[in-house]
Structures are given as C-alpha cells and as structure tokens.
Computed example of a mutant assay.
Amino acid sequence: MTDIPNVRLIGIDFEREGKSHGYIGIQHSTTRSCYYWVPLPITCIKNSSGPTVLLISGIHGDEYEGQIALSKLAANLQPVDITGRVLILPMANFPAAKTGARTSPIDDGDLNRLFPGEANGSVSQQIAAYMEHALMAISDFVIDLHAGGSSIMHVAAAIVVAEEDAVRFQQQMALAQAFGAPYTIVYASRSQPHFGKIALTASARQGAIAIGAELGGAGSVTSNSLSLTELGLIRVLHKIGVLAGISNAPPPMRTQVLSSDRPDTMIWAMEAGLFEPAVTVGSSVRRGDVAGRIHVVDSPGYPSTEYRFDEDGVVTVARFMTQVQRGDCLYRIAFRPGHSPGSHE
C-alpha cells in the first residue's frame, strides 16, 4: 500500500482471515482535541483466496441507502459466506456523513471531486488518497453507492463510466445487469470534465472493475430504494463469485440502458425563485415539452419563467428543493440507444 503519513489503521488488518471491524484514522488536530484522528469505519471479511471487492457508500454524506445497506451487510455477512475478501466502507466521507451533508464540514471537500487526492493535503484529500492508493489498489472490483442527496431525486440506476477496453466494459455491464436497477446509465469516460476525479475512474486507474449506483434522493430512504440496494449488492457479489452458496435474492429485472455521453444534458435555473416542476424522474420527454416554471414570488406581478427540454430523452435527475438560485440544476436527461443530438425518438 502507498504510504499516507497521516493515516493509521485502528483494529483492522486487511490480510487477517475472518471478520474484523475497525477504523481508518485521518490525523486532524483541532482546538477541542489536539491529537484527534477522524475515524472512518471499515469492515474486512476474508476467507481463503479469491477476489477482493470494495463496497463504498457515504462519499456524499446526505445519501443514505448505501450507508444503511452496507452497515447491515457489515453486521450480517460472515466469513463462511464468502470466498475472497470484502471490504466495507459505509461512511467514506465520515465528517460529511455524520452531519448529513454532501461535503465535509472540516474543509468543504466534495470527496467525489478529489481523487486521486493528496497524501499531505486536507482531510478530504487524504481520504481520497488513501481510498485510491490503498483500498482501490488492492481491489479487483469496486461498487460505489450513491443517491441524489438533499437537493435532487435520481432515478434508480446502475452507473457505468465506460472503459475503453471492450473486455473490461463487458465486465462492467455484466455487473450492472446483475445489480438489477430499472436503468443502467452509461457515461462516456471523457464526457464530463470532473470524471477523472471521481471514485469510479479512480478505481479504474488502479485496475479494478467498477460500477456505481444512484438509488433515490431527497435526503431520505424508502423501503423500495433500500430493498433494491440490498438485493443489488447480493446479486453483484454472487456474480463476482465472492458470495458462496445459493442466493435468496430474486433474479434481476431487465435494466433499460441509457447513455449520457455529453455534458450539456442539464437544465439550469437562470433566476432565483420557487421552482414548479412539470415532470419527475423516469419521465420520457420530447424536445419542446415543458420542464417547469420558476416563480419570482417576492416581485408582485412579475411573470414566471417557463423552461422546456431541448432534447428527447428520459429524465434521470429532478430537483427536489423548491427554492432555487441561478445556477441550480433543475433536470438532467439521458438518451436511449440510437439517439443522436437534435433527433426525435
């Protein structure tokens, strides 16, 4: 493992057979506690030889399905159940997860924009560095669980940042199919400027086959979204070959593949006000359809502004919070196979 000087392991040994719980400690001196370390909880379950799977949630602290599902898995999964090694990191950005925020209250770090991190950087940069150069570096597979957080709803979907190598891409798609979400959204690896800084591409840099998932949002959890998360994890672990025995999970539903290979698939608020949505996640839309309206309520008689979709597609992201400022994302869409910009499906 790469040496990250301000990181220590407490109660955990990734080479030990059996099951252990512990912490990744990130040194952070404060007025309240001069020798404090930020404790990232982690579980290692190891039995014999086999692939290593890293399960991540809490990269954004206000996304909860993954945190609950991985907490339950860490408690219930036993060494006898697996062949290989499973690493479970349920609160990757621990300071953010403890406060229920997207970013860290220590340094305002968005962990999913900081990979590969810096060994001597801020707390969030050190977390990113340790995750990529220590955890991802020893992993054969990585599953990164997300949701829409406090501000948006996201359609339930497996997420694939497409590998350029055809064999690796097929492995990604096989895991996405096994996860069994209603949608699988495939992003071209260079379609977004920040993709080089996210956990999925960091995992790929270290040689792991990685997929993500988006599983709800609005800062909440439903029984349906949690069930999808838990069953998806079981099916993926079986697909990889780590989970022994016969799965009790039902077979995955057929997933609808969408592509999002351009950065201009969002509608942005251009003024502050109250947002009235016209559609929600999963809606099929056509170019020219009304997306919603923004009302400037504190200016009596001021006309509302209407927003329309520029493309045909499926709504994958919809704003949940009604109050908006200029620059807030209102919607994001993805496309069915065969779509070309400007075309009608």
Rank of each mutant, 00 (worst) to 15 (best):
residue 230 E to F: 04
residue 230 E to L: 06
residue 230 E to M: 10
residue 230 E to W: 07
residue 231 L to N: 02
residue 231 L to I: 09
residue 231 L to V: 06
residue 233 L to S: 09
residue 233 L to R: 03
residue 234 I to G: 00
residue 235 R to C: 05
residue 235 R to S: 07
residue 235 R to Y: 03
residue 235 R to V: 02
residue 235 R to N: 05
residue 236 V to W: 00
residue 236 V to N: 05
residue 236 V to A: 05
residue 237 L to V: 02
residue 237 L to P: 00
residue 238 H to T: 08
residue 238 H to L: 01
residue 239 K to E: 13
residue 239 K to L: 06
residue 240 I to W: 01
residue 240 I to F: 00
residue 241 G to F: 09
residue 241 G to R: 01
residue 241 G to I: 08
residue 242 V to H: 01
residue 242 V to M: 01
residue 242 V to K: 00
residue 242 V to P: 01
residue 242 V to G: 00
residue 243 L to I: 05
residue 244 A to S: 12
residue 244 A to F: 05
residue 244 A to R: 15
residue 244 A to Q: 14
residue 245 G to S: 06
residue 246 I to R: 08
residue 247 S to F: 03
residue 247 S to P: 00
residue 248 N to F: 06
residue 248 N to V: 06
residue 248 N to Y: 04
residue 248 N to K: 08
residue 250 P to I: 07
residue 250 P to A: 06
residue 250 P to Y: 03
residue 251 P to T: 07
residue 251 P to Y: 08
residue 251 P to Q: 10
residue 252 P to G: 01
residue 253 M to I: 14
residue 253 M to E: 12
residue 255 T to H: 04
residue 255 T to N: 08
residue 255 T to C: 07
residue 256 Q to T: 15
residue 257 V to L: 13
residue 257 V to N: 13
residue 257 V to G: 11
residue 258 L to N: 12
residue 259 S to R: 14
residue 259 S to M: 12
residue 259 S to W: 14
residue 259 S to Y: 15
residue 260 S to A: 14
residue 260 S to W: 11
residue 260 S to N: 11
residue 261 D to F: 05
residue 261 D to I: 10
residue 261 D to M: 09
residue 261 D to N: 15
residue 261 D to W: 07
residue 261 D to R: 09
residue 262 R to M: 11
residue 262 R to S: 12
residue 263 P to S: 10
residue 263 P to M: 07
residue 263 P to Y: 03
residue 263 P to L: 04
residue 264 D to Q: 09
residue 264 D to W: 09
residue 264 D to I: 06
residue 266 M to K: 14
residue 266 M to H: 15
residue 266 M to V: 14
residue 266 M to D: 15
